[in-house]
Structures are given as C-alpha cells and as structure tokens.
Design a protein around this nucleic acid. Structure first.
Length: 496
RNA sequence: GGCCCGGUGGUCAAGCGGUUAAGACUCCGCCCUUUCACGGCGGCAACACGGGUUCGAGUCCCGUCCGGGUCACCA
C-alpha cells in the first residue's frame, strides 16, 4: 500500500499560519480541576495577549475512560469564565474536527508516514506487564526494531496484531527549549521507543498531540510540567516529520500541600465545588492567575486583575518554575475584595438567594439586609448564619446584656430599654435617620455613652452578640412593631 | 534506582552581582466605632546547607540535602 502524499499536502495547506494559536486540550473527565482551569486560563491569555486564536480540542483517545456528558462541563466552565474559544468542536473551524476520536484515520496515516521515513516501526511483541514494570525491557533487543519494512508490512497485511513505536536514536542527545524552563538536554539512551499507535489502532496521547498540534497550527503548547520529561520525544517526532517545533510552555502544578498535587481523589475542590462554596468566578480566576504567574514592572504591585487586564499584562516571563500551594484563605480574601467592589444592587442580587435561605419573611427588605452584609462576608455562603435572627428572635442568654466596654449589665440594660421603648414608640418616621437621632438624643439625655444605650437595644432586637450592622439598622429593618415586641421581651428577660 | 526539574517568611511572591531583602494572605497590637466587619496605622516572620568565583552573591558555578515529575498499548 503506497502512501497517498496528496493527503499530506492537503492537510498542510489547511494549516493557518502567521498568528499565535494556542489550544486547551482537556481529556473529558467530568469536572474541571483548579490546575486545569489555570492551564486553560494561561493558554487563553497567551492567545489573547498576542491577538491570536484560542482553540478547544477534546482529547478522548482513551476509550476506557470516556465519561458521558463530560465535554459539556468543559464548554460550560470556559463560557462561564469568559475563556471563549475561536475554534472547537461546537463552533467548528478551518482544521476541524476538534475531537480526537473523530480524527482516527489521520493518526494512522501519519504514523505510517513516519514508518516510511524510518522514525517509527511496527512492533509485534507482546510484552508482559512485569517486563515493562521492571523496566528491564531492552529496546535494542526488540527484534521488531530491526525488522525490514517489507517483512513487517507482510505481517501487518496478514492481519497480525501490532503497535507502532517511535524509533529513538540510540546515540546522542536531544535538546529542547521551554519558555519557562529554558533549554533542557537529555541523553537519547534514556528515552524509550514509545508506542505511537496502540493495538486498538488509536493513537497514544503523545502521538495524537504532536500530530494535532502541528495540523492545527499550534504555536504555543501549554501543558502541565508532568510532560516535561516526554518533551524530548516530542521534539524527535517533530524533527522526524520535518515540522517546526512549537514553543513549549510547561506549567508547574497547583499543589494541595508541599508534596501532593490538588486532586479530586484527595477531596480537593474543583471549580464547580468552589462556586458551590460561595466563591465568585472572577475572584477564582484572579487568584488562580496569580498562583504561578506574577506581573512585572509597573504592575508588579497590582493584585486585582480583570480578565481583560490579565490579557493585557500577561507574559511568559512572569511564569514561575516551582509548584504553588493552593491557599483557600487567600482565595477567600480575593473573593471578599470582589464582593466589596460590587455595586450595592449587584451584590444584593447575588446575595438574595443566600439571604432568603433563612429570611423567609417577605416584609424584611433584601437590599437593606444585603447592604449590611456586603462588607461583612467573604463568601456568599457566610450569609445565612449571619442573618437568621431577622426571621425569628433566637433563644438567648440574658448574660448577653452584660458588656464591659459598653458599660452595660442587666440593671443598666433594663433602664436603657425602659427608656428606649417609649422613645421609639413615639417616632413619626421609621427611618434609619429618625431611629438614630432618637437613640443618640436619648443617650445624651440620659448622660450615657452611645454604646451603653445601643448595646442593650441591639441585643434585645437581635438576640445575639455579634450581628451585621448596629442597633439602628437592625431596628429599621425589623420594623416598628417587631422591634418593640423584641424590646419588650428583652426587658422582661433582663428583669427576670 | 536512572533521568529531568525545582528550593526567598506558614502560604503566594518581587528580586535578575551592590536594596535597611518589596508587596499580598494569615496571625498579633493600636486607631476608628453602636457589637462584628470594613477602613487606617504598626508589628512578628525568609534567601535549605557547604564550598567556590568576585572588591562584593538570594542573584553566577560545584557539591550536599530536601521536594516534585517521569520511566504505560493513561492522559
């Protein structure tokens, strides 16, 4: 069977050239790791920073690991994060298809081409797992390596099962360049004749990757540093085909602690999990971007970045070589920053479901409660436990009326509440200003500091020691009737 | 174990031969104050170790130690 050179020529002609092209190439597992998300982000940033093209490619060559609907998680996450792709399975593009399982015949053809060029060979051996595991498989001793091509071809034609292996030079060394790590050289004898085409006819990740990256015109190959050690083999593959080698960008991993990568298995949160924990997408992206990359020059001090700002500021120079430990506390800090930076209406909108989880009373104003919360929560999930007292006055200990700094105790509190009740009862308008003025005026009249009066009022109104907002805001939100009811209850409690 | 990579406070992270070694998170103290937050101010805390090179080394070289990755018909 002769090679159809026309096919290869046509494939070459389709390749877009002249612009930066990057690709995010996940294998569909059903969830988005934080590390994956960061890789996607960096890949997107490199493309956007250069005015290039960002491509999504699905790598599903492992038939044993297919997960139903897993690709949807990827589409949804990228869209939600604003990491829009210019080409991909769902939007098409000049070098479609973008799903590896649909490119099967391509890999076979290119593998055959490589065999023809002498950089790969058919292998009919069935090595046992123990042989492979022991690492004592001696490539040079593989009889298939030196099998004449026509002989091998005959066996293939006869239907004998085979794999195709890369023929690594026995001598010399291979040097490749990585944008983050610089030049790395390894001895060829430390490389093995890796399988390119599996017995089932599908390509291995390593081979499909090289073929697709070339055929899709990828200029920057961004991936995890776990691929650093297979990069020399990639180089040899590119050279074997006579293709230009892309710029490698190997990103160090996101760790859960000093020795373990973040992983689903250890129960580390995925992107979806973080959202469920009350984190905002832009805050997650911002934090994750800075985990492994830092801005230079004028921007060196900046820590809050929108996606657009990141795209403008991003550069390979700022990438870190060492692994970074994911710190939920710092993510929390970024989240708090984003929460506070929101317009009050916007915050009220995102906070509403969390407020309504515990505040069922429709008479209580969500925007008013949200206003108290905005500077007081770091995650949306902090909200419910902070505002539960609005709906129902909790059981509380009269000891709460005692506070040293405010100079209150049960006796003082009784006196304060007795004075506060008529003062509030007589108010014309139930506004924060009116309540504030009435109470401050009363404190002045009683010749006590504000806190001495405010403390018992707040405790009686809320029934808990720590509340978002002070006595004035709480009373205002509660409304006149409910406030007075609670103050009377408090008075009774403190006199008992 | 072989090969490859990495190593600045607890964490992220500036630094690219000459700095009192930035900044952020966390923690602590103070101020503000109607509790708590927010905000403001201040503080604790680091160049893994040993040799070189150099007038001078966190920055360059070598070694040691520690950590990670990889050695699949998984990606």
């Amino acid at each position: 069977m002769a090679l159809d050179m026309k096919y290869f020529e046509e494939m070459e002609e389709k390749i877009p050239r002249g612009k930066v092209r990057t690709r995010f190439a996940p294998s569909p597992t059903g969830y988005m790791h934080v590390g994956n998300l960061r890789t996607a982000l960096y890949t997107w940033l490199i493309a956007r920073n250069a005015g290039g093209t960002f491509i999504l490619r699905i790598e599903d060559t492992d038939q044993g690991r297919l997960v139903e609907g897993a690709a949807d998680v990827i589409y949804r996450t990228l869209a939600e994060c604003g990491l829009n792709h210019d080409e991909g399975p769902d939007v098409g593009g000049p070098v479609a298809p973008y799903i590896q399982s649909q490119r099967r015949d391509t890999y076979g053809k290119y593998a055959r081409l490589l065999v023809e060029k002498g950089h790969a060979y058919y292998c009919f051996c069935e090595k046992t797992e123990s042989e492979e595991d022991a690492g004592d498989f001696n490539r040079a001793a593989d009889p298939c390596r030196s099998l004449p091509l026509d002989e091998a071809q005959a066996r293939v034609d006869a239907g004998e099962p085979y794999v195709i292996r890369q023929r690594i030079p026995q001598e010399g060394s291979t040097t490749f360049h990585d944008a983050i790590f610089g030049d790395i050289t390894v001895e060829n004898k430390t490389l093995d004749d890796q399988v390119l085409i599996k017995r089932d006819g599908l390509p291995t990740y390593n081979f499909a990757n090289v073929v697709d990256d070339h055929l899709m015109g990828i200029t920057h190959v961004v991936r995890g540093s776990e691929y650093l050690s297979s990069a020399p083999k990639y180089n040899l593959l590119y050279q074997g085909f006579g293709w230009d080698v892309p710029t490698y960008v190997h990103c160090s991993p996101v760790m859960r602690d000093a020795q373990n990568k973040m992983s689903k298995r250890h129960g580390d949160p995925s992107y979806e999990d973080l959202k469920a924990q009350g984190f905002l997408t832009p805050a997650i992206l911002n934090y994750v971007a800075l985990l492994g990359w830092s801005p230079r020059g004028d921007l060196a001090e900046q820590e809050v970045f929108s996606l657009e700002e990141l795209a403008r500021a991003f550069d390979l120079e700022g990438m870190s070589k060492s692994p970074a430990i994911f710190d939920i506390e710092k993510l929390t800090h970024f989240n708090a920053l984003y929460l506070r930076a929101m317009a009050p209406e916007e915050f009220a909108q995102v906070a509403e479901p969390y407020i309504r989880e515990v505040v069922k009373n429709k008479n209580l104003s969500v925007p008013a409660i949200a206003a108290l919360l905005q500077a007081r929560c770091e995650k949306l999930t902090d909200i419910p436990e902070k505002v539960d007292f609005f709906d129902a006055l909790p059981e509380y200990d009269p000891e709460l009326f005692t506070n040293k700094k405010s100079k209150t105790n049960p006796e003082v509190s009784a006196r304060m509440l007795e004075a506060a009740i008529p003062a509030l009862e007589g108010l014309e308008d139930w506004t924060a200003e009116a309540i504030h003025d009435a109470l401050v005026g009363l404190a002045e009249k009683l010749e006590v500091k504000n806190a001495t009066l405010m403390w018992p009022v707040r405790i009686a109104a809320a029934g808990k020691a720590v509340t978002p907002g002070g006595a004035v805001e709480i009373c205002q939100i509660l409304g006149r009737e409910e406030t007075l009811r609670r103050l009377h209850l408090g008075l009774a409690k403190v006199k008992a």
